[in-house]
Design a protein around this nucleic acid. Structure first.
Lengths: 141, 141
DNA sequence: CCTTGAACCTATAGTTACTAGAGCATTTAT
DNA sequence: ATAAATGCTCTAGTAACTATAGGTTCAAGG
């Protein structure tokens, strides 16, 4: 029932897809595991931990590039953590920018929808706004 | 000085890149313009308007697929605008979801950064949180 | 008129982070 | 023993562009 840590079990344990696990191996972010007699991947617990780290960082919106950096940091516990801090701060800035943008976008969409009263396309506020940028008051780009 | 509407002028007028204009033509979202004697694209005003529509919708975060739908609606002014409304509403929902997610993400990042006091990686909260999902209080997936 | 440099052309490949499919081998359960 | 599930590799597809290479055309200056 338990048996060896096949790719399917690892994927289930970390909530990511089987192909994604293989993909992470291929791009070198997850070490190649050993193989069974029949050439199937057999993982160790450490693989699961690394995968969990990756998935978690991705969930938080870090790019794989950043994840790579964070992982190499995590592998050197004696180093100072300024670099990790810098990565996180840079990411926070990006997140805040995206947040602002999405917020003004939401406002604009709400206004568009609110003013579209189910008439004809020719009177449709949504289409009008898309035609004439100056009709929208939001500060989006 | 004014001259014909070449691709460069159209791109400048709509704030998008020359390659992007060609790309939109290639994927069939922007009609192919006429050509000059020397095989260069010569646009009409209508192209600029359509491009502006596209860029504006993309700015608002609509996918090209949605833009395609909205454009085909815009081309039929006599139709009811329920469909445009539905597209916009669906998009609004997506935007709101993303917003929530980004917000909890921002909270989590801030806490991570706040608690990382420039020590060593072994004590770094950022790395710790990425290692152990349960350390983070945020509701992200 | 000629040249030079900017802008144009096509076609192809690269980006990010996966996801999906074909076609076959192995493992597990019955 | 067999059938279903899972695994394997390799390739291509996704979104929405962006970039490069290698060549043509156009507009302006001398």
């Amino acid at each position: 029932m338990a048996g060896p840590l096949t790719i399917g079990r690892v994927a289930k344990a970390t909530l990511c897809k089987v192909q994604t696990v293989r993909y992470y191996e291929k791009i070198g972010i997850l070490p190649s595991p050993g193989r069974s007699a029949g050439n199937q991947r057999i993982y160790e617990q450490s693989h699961i931990e690394r995968l969990a780290f990756i998935r978690h960082a991705r969930d938080l919106g870090f790019t794989l590039k950043s994840v790579r950096e964070l992982l190499s940091l995590a592998d050197q516990p004696d180093q100072p953590c300024d670099v990790a801090d810098t990565i996180a701060r840079k990411h926070l800035l990006q997140v805040e920018t995206r947040l602002e943008r999405l917020l003004s976008l939401k406002t604009e969409l709400k206004r568009m929808i609110h003013q579209c009263k189910g008439g004809q396309i020719s009177d449709c506020r949504i289409i009008q706004v898309l035609h004439d940028h100056h009709l929208c008051l939001g500060g989006h780009q």
